[in-house]
Nucleic acid binder design. Structure first.
Lengths: 352, 352
DNA sequence: TTGAAAGCGCTAACAT
DNA sequence: ATGTTAGCGCTTTCAA
């Protein structure tokens, strides 16, 4: 059962009494074929359930219709959402996707890049990992240039020293949405929670927050802005714990609101806040980014900045494909967040 | 920059003053090459950063080293965990993965299968979707036989009418673990919540539950066993709501414990239980399956059956690859769950 | 509109 | 140990 000879374009041609070229023509629709023959050919294709080899096609016309995606970790909801959007977009354009997880390890990222290069992917999209760094790694940049020298590289962050295409979320705008909301609700003592300053998107948010601190006259001081941590649940809890200690030590009352670096981190922070016996949002409002499913699940439901993943994916893939075809494409696209979804965790008017 | 001629094995051969075959030999390590030449060749490979075309190789030796994965929805933590395990295993064996989401639509599944067939994937692994059905779709079975007639098909459920390879979790065993735990904690009135009986894994759990109802002398009646629903958060909440209504209508006190069909559904059920003013686990214990990250995040933390994803992935991939090589492989593997992780939601001794 | 033939970049006999 | 050559299954000039 594993052994029926795989049928080729030649088999079809022979039985249809035409040349292989003609079969190819009806397959690709690249030229006119007399209806009579076309029907004969299509009938055979159907009869044998013939599927032309994408491999052979890839070899002969050097367009593979493969787009490679390197993602930090698909188990992360944010990336999963992004990935699905990309796959959908690619699929609509007739492209297949090769997915590789890098677990944010540069070595793995390079290995995956090499595999993609070997597959002659028409383009590579990288989400997270090395392209998220505030200071691009020169080593990785070199790898991108060498390994993928001929392959358009589309990234969610940036990669200095390469001519990659950048399609990023406007993180500054996301922070603004949160700040405006919190301000309107009467919050003035607001703290940033989680994330690392060496991550570009985190740093951008941090910077804009500092700027808005002036505009909105938020309370200032690194007690509020330097509560660095990670991007996971446990880390959120831990960072929140440390923050409570810092404020206690400084003899300053805890902030009225916190802006967590993402939903998972926020969930951890919320756990710690509950343990502290503080109420959300009455004592502390909580807001974050990404608007993944978790926001509806946790208690209280979590306000979060939503992104239009479908659109971002579409732009990334279009950029990738067009660049792969050698078209002129903008090297920098900033995508506006869809908006802040206000839920219970921040839906509270604080009296000034 | 997009235009350096891609270099081939011939270019290397010429410059190294050897034949293309020799270059191929050092590339594949398939035969001995004199050290002197080997060094020269490797130097050139390095110099030009040459990556042999996987496409050409695939064409010439008919082994692509691609394994296709069709998954119901990668955004679902359970599948994401499974996928990552598969990708890891595949990667270790030198295989690349093509991932396709089917969103549990049979039409899409068939399309994805066709693409994989065109890519001459060495094997296809399908997680969820049509292969999860209790009664396999004859239509899908036909597609599997036709489209992937030559490609080994490894599934997480089953597909009657095909000679696919089955690597499944022992769901009956998973139910047993939960039942034993609940029994030991003194629960006797236990209800099943969520899922659909036309889904194989769900049905298997249901059946075993009925059997154990005898053994453990659990309260019986379809009030306890027929609270069907879906697999999502909102559905969990809804199913729980309906269940409360049914019990109230029947004048029966709510169960002491519920077994939800997965963690997300459990989260929904928990929300509804909280809304009812009942305490978990004091009034109702809650247990479910999959042990995804959410279990630690929600309040109270959720007891759940854990699977060893790495192992399952390894087995699936090994089966896929071996079958692809034409080796004799077992057509049916049942993988034991790793165990029940008891957390707060069920950690309560009920007085009999 | 159609066919013949060259080539895409590699591997695998088969010679030597 | 190494070179020659014939594919692998398509697409694509180039002719007819």
């Amino acid at each position: 059962m594993q052994t029926e000879k795989t049928i080729t374009i030649y088999d079809i041609a022979k039985e249809a009494e035409v040349s292989p070229a003609t079969v190819s023509r009806v397959l690709t629709g690249s030229a006119n074929v007399k209806n009579e023959k076309k029907r004969r050919i299509m009938a055979l294709i159907d009869k044998y359930n013939f599927k032309p080899s994408a491999v052979a096609r890839g070899l002969s016309d050097t367009k593979n219709r493969i787009i490679g995606i390197i993602v930090a970790d698909i188990r992360n909801s944010f990336y999963a959402d992004m990935y699905v959007a990309c796959e959908n977009a690619a699929s609509r354009e007739g492209y297949s996707v090769m997915l590789f997880n890098s677990f944010a390890s540069m070595d793995i990222e390079k290995t995956q890049m090499e595999k993609l290069a070997e597959w002659r992917a028409d383009a590579i999209i990288q989400l997270g990992g090395a392209v998220d760094a505030r200071k691009s790694s020169a080593e990785y940049a070199r790898a991108v240039n060498e390994v993928a020298g001929n392959i358009p590289f589309v990234v969610s962050g940036k990669m200095d020293g390469t001519d990659c295409y950048r399609v990023s979320i406007d993180h500054a705008r996301a922070l603004e949405m949160i700040a405006a909301h919190l301000y309107e609700k009467g919050n003035r003592r607001i703290a940033l929670v989680g994330g690392r300053p060496d991550v570009l998107s985190t740093y951008i948010k941090y910077q804009r927050f500092l700027e808005l601190t002036e505009k909105y006259d938020f309370e200032r001081g690194n007690l509020y802005t330097e509560n660095w941590g990670g991007y996971g649940f446990n880390e959120g809890e831990k960072t929140m714990d440390e923050m409570f200690k810092r404020f206690r030590l400084a003899g300053v009352p805890v902030p009225e609101a916190i802006i967590c670096i993402n939903d998972t981190t926020a969930a951890g922070a919320i756990k710690r806040i509950n343990a502290e016996g503080l109420r959300i949002p009455e004592d502390i409002s909580v807001v974050s980014y990404d608007n993944v499913e978790l926001c509806e699940i946790i208690e209280p439901s979590l306000s979060s900045v939503a992104y239009d993943y479908e659109t971002i994916g579409k732009i990334m893939v279009k950029t990738a494909i067009d660049a792969g075809k050698g078209k002129e494409v903008s090297h920098e696209r900033l995508v506006e967040p869809a908006g802040l979804v206000v839920r219970r965790s921040s839906n509270f008017e604080r009296i000034l």
